[in-house]
Design a protein around this nucleic acid. Structure first.
Lengths: 233, 233
DNA sequence: TGTACATCAGTGAACGCGCGTTCACTGATGTAC
DNA sequence: TGTACATCAGTGAACGCGCGTTCACTGATGTAC
């Protein structure tokens, strides 16, 4: 999961493993006890260490949280990129389905991490923007690419400054709006569902979700292509 | 704010006021410290009482939280109903804008309460469904009514079992889907905005929000009416 | 109107708990010669 | 290859803190006669 430098000493390998285990236990704890209940002492306890040992790896609780947030964004970004890559580049509908379904699947497979990055902000904690932002941006790349191409294909030809983008704010207004709208759709449906507000209401959330993505494709003018009905979750 | 029974003794009036103050302080505390940090001791401290006194009013911390949740749903329901009532009954577009804008405005005016009911669920707490549900249902009434009428007007005439509905699950599939979709749009946009994920990205969230509501009206086939461009927040 | 009694809001001390963080330390792992 | 030294992961005790909840109590408010 990290760089495989030529030779790592026992000590270095242990250090990497221990740091990884701390984060794994933290994730498991957030999953079962909630994000706010994350406790260094509890992590240490589970690992059979004393609490101060954690400080060899993370200078404070907040730094651990920051690391978990960055990891979460990367995990989400990987999932979205991987899903996107499995579809032909010019099948924009297929890609949109792949990406949006992967988003929902990731959220359900990583509830705690989803809450961590998209849920209610943590009380006394403010993520250091410069650390968090690059990871967060990575997660937006595939969706932005699809929507940008879709809008360009649909004829609204503002695609002069194309190619690589560095953060959403550099995008044209239309594309940016469409991306936020799409994201809001995904996020709205997923968080209502995940946090139990659509629970007793909707029997087939999969179908509803897909139906909403179909609406997105219509808005983007790419609805003519195949809806790609695989299983979504 | 409560029933005005003929004569209330000093004691009864004090009791009502104190219970209300406890909840007000609790709301203020959630606003500033976060929902999870709500503390009976801190509330008592601010009120110049000792902590055990709170137990005269709420049998436990969880019961206080439940009361706050119910209050929040009613507050939201009141806001939505009031907004809805200010528009002519048959101006469906106007009503949809009034309701959805009121939703967003309420969320921003009551951040903590919004988080409490729509944010990440609280750790060891599960709201008693039978207490919470009626209040939650009240908040869905106006939106359901508008969407039901819109779909009926648009010709898809499934409106046989019309009239009063008792909870979303009794509705026809089409209407229920449309309501959830609309709610997801509002909720997605509002929570991305409120929790700071659209912060540095979107300069004019008001306009974007309204634009999305316009899309909703198109889906519902009521886009022909005036977009009603008042101030939204 | 006045007295005796019941209700009940609020007190103060105590319970047992868990937390993040600091500090001086031990002892194993790794490095230089 | 062997010894002397440096690094650093982890320990154990302690800091000061806040929390929800219980309990026996005091004293003011309200009620019955």
């Amino acid at each position: 999961m990290s760089e495989t430098s030529p030779t790592l000493s026992r000590r270095e390998r242990n250090r990497i493993n221990t740091a990884a285990e701390i984060k794994d236990r933290a994730r498991a704890q957030m999953e079962s006890e909630g994000v706010a209940a994350l406790s260094l002492r509890a992590i240490a306890r589970e690992m059979g260490m004393t609490a101060p040992a954690i400080y060899r790896y993370f200078p404070s609780r907040n730094d651990l949280v920051t690391a978990l947030i960055v990891d979460s964004y990367h995990s989400l970004a990987d999932a979205l990129n991987e899903a996107d890559a499995s579809v032909a580049r010019d099948d924009l509908t297929g890609r949109l389905f792949a990406i949006t379904r992967a988003y929902r699947a990731w959220a359900f497979a990583h509830r705690a991490e989803y809450s961590l990055i998209f849920g209610t902000p943590i009380i006394g904690y403010h993520a250091p923007y410069e650390v968090t932002k690059p990871a967060a941006n990575r997660a937006t790349v595939p969706l932005v690419d699809v929507i940008m191409k879709a809008m360009r294909r649909a004829g609204a030809g503002p695609g002069q400054n194309s190619g690589v983008y560095s953060g959403l704010s550099a995008l044209e207004d239309d594309v940016r709006h469409a991306v936020i709208a799409a994201w809001a759709t995904m996020h709205g449906l997923v968080s209502l569902e995940l946090f139990g507000h659509a629970e007793k209401i909707e029997a087939s959330p999969d179908a509803l979700y897909d139906a909403e993505i179909v609406w997105l494709t219509r808005r983007l003018g790419i609805e003519t292509q195949s809806p790609n009905n695989g299983n979504s979750l």
